[in-house]
Simulated scan of single mutants.
Amino acid sequence: MTNLLPRLWSFLKRFEARVLIGLFLVAATLLAFLGLADEMVEGETQVIDRQLMLALRTPGDLNNPIGSHGVEEAVRDITALGGTTLVVVVTVVAVLAFLFHKKRIHALVMAGAVMAASLSSNLTKDLFSRPRPDLVPHEVFVYSGSFPSGHSTMSTAAFLTLAMLIASLEMKQRSKALALTLAALVVVGVGFSRVYLGVHWPSDVLAGWCLGAGWALVGWLVLRLLGGQTRGAG
């Protein structure tokens, strides 16, 4: 037993073990997404979806989200972090920055993860064609299907992938943790904002997180397999 933990830790540090773990996590996110989709189609998420959305509205006044007008405006700003325009800008800037520093694999992973997330989000929206919530008034303009949340998918894929790529180049654990923590905060903030603004059910957001995280994990696997990881940074 004394030698078991060191051996286990030594195994987990090996390249093959990390790739296997990555594959497992990708499969887990895909299964989670499919499970949510199945429950959504069967209507099993409807009760909790309604309860969570109503919890963010002033009792007796569904037109008014909880919080002041300043909070509402701040949430609208946060939701823009997952919008197409800002995600494209972040992706282009990141790709150019990686290319400038001769990190071609990093640039490829960044662009590939975001494009794959966008394509899969649009395809699944068309596939499921879930109507937008009509329980409360929408606080921002919407024009596409509800499942999964495109903002949640895109922000998760873009910001988690970017944080992962930055972490792969950093030697300090604190810097890695900072990049990943900031990305997670953005992802959670964008997802919350979609429900707060009444344009997505909570299950839409959760599905978007699963889909986007899956592509970020695929990006991590590609980075590992193509040797883009800085030695000592993994």
Score class of each variant (00 low, 15 high):
Arg130Asp: 09
Leu12Val: 03
Val95Gly: 01
Leu127Pro: 03
Trp215Arg: 00
Leu127Gln: 10
Glu16Gly: 15
Gln46Phe: 11
Asn63Met: 03
Cys210Asn: 10
Val188Glu: 01
His151Gly: 09
Glu170Thr: 12
Thr91Cys: 00
Leu86Ser: 06
Tyr143Pro: 09
Thr230Asn: 07
Val199Asn: 05
Ala94Leu: 04
Gly82Lys: 04
Arg57Leu: 10
Leu31Trp: 09
Arg132Tyr: 10
Val26Asn: 05
Ser120Gly: 03
Pro133Gln: 02
Leu225Tyr: 08
Trp201Thr: 00
Lys172Gly: 05
Leu23Tyr: 11
Arg18Cys: 02
Glu39Cys: 00
Gly43Cys: 04
Met171Phe: 09
Gly214Asn: 10
Tyr143Asp: 14
Gly67Ile: 08
Arg130Phe: 02
Val19His: 05
His101Cys: 05
Ser68Gly: 15
Leu226His: 06
Leu127Asn: 00
Thr58Glu: 15
Leu162Gln: 06
Leu4Arg: 11
Thr156Asp: 08
Phe147Cys: 04
Val71His: 14
Leu178His: 13
Ala207Cys: 10
Leu135Met: 04
Val186Ile: 15
Leu81Cys: 09
Leu99Asp: 00
Glu16Lys: 10
Pro202Met: 02
Leu178Ser: 14
Asn63Asp: 15
Met53Val: 01
Leu223Ala: 05
Met53Trp: 13
Arg104Gly: 05
Asp126Tyr: 14
Gly82Met: 06
Val199Thr: 13
Asp134Lys: 11
Gln46Arg: 14
Lys102Ser: 06
Met171Asp: 04
Leu25Lys: 08
Val93Asn: 07
Val89Tyr: 10
Ala94Ser: 12
Arg104Thr: 12
Leu30Gly: 03
His101Met: 09
Ala17Thr: 08
Arg76Gly: 12
Gly150Lys: 04
Val190Gly: 09
His101Ile: 04
Ala37Pro: 00
Val188Asp: 06
Pro65Val: 03
Thr124Leu: 15
Glu72His: 15
Gly208Lys: 05
Val222Trp: 13
Met115Asp: 00
Trp9Asn: 09
Leu5Lys: 13
Ala28Cys: 11
Val75Ser: 02
Ala167Lys: 05
Phe147Trp: 07
Ala116Gly: 02
Gly189Thr: 04
Ile66Lys: 10
Ala55Lys: 13
Val41Ser: 01
Gly83Val: 03
Ala179Ile: 02
Gly150Asp: 02
Gly214Ser: 13
Ile66Ala: 12
Leu160Gln: 01
Leu221Met: 08
Ile48Ser: 13
Ala183Glu: 02
Thr230Trp: 06
Trp215Glu: 10
Gly228Arg: 07
Ser144Ala: 12
His200Phe: 12
Lys102Gly: 06
Lys172Thr: 01
Val186Tyr: 11
Ala27Asn: 10
Ala163Asn: 03
Leu135Gly: 01
Phe192Gln: 07
His138Pro: 12
Asp61Pro: 02
Leu123Pro: 06
Val88Cys: 06
Thr156Val: 05
Pro133Ile: 11
Leu225Thr: 11
Val95Asp: 04
Gly70Leu: 12
Leu182Val: 13
Leu31Ser: 13
Ala55Val: 06
Trp9Thr: 14
Ser146Thr: 00
Gly219Arg: 03
Gly227Ala: 04
Phe159His: 12
Phe128Gly: 01
Met53Gln: 09
Gly189Tyr: 06
Val87Gln: 01
Met53Asp: 11
Leu96Met: 14
Thr79Ile: 07
Pro137Phe: 03
Leu86Ile: 14
Thr84Arg: 02
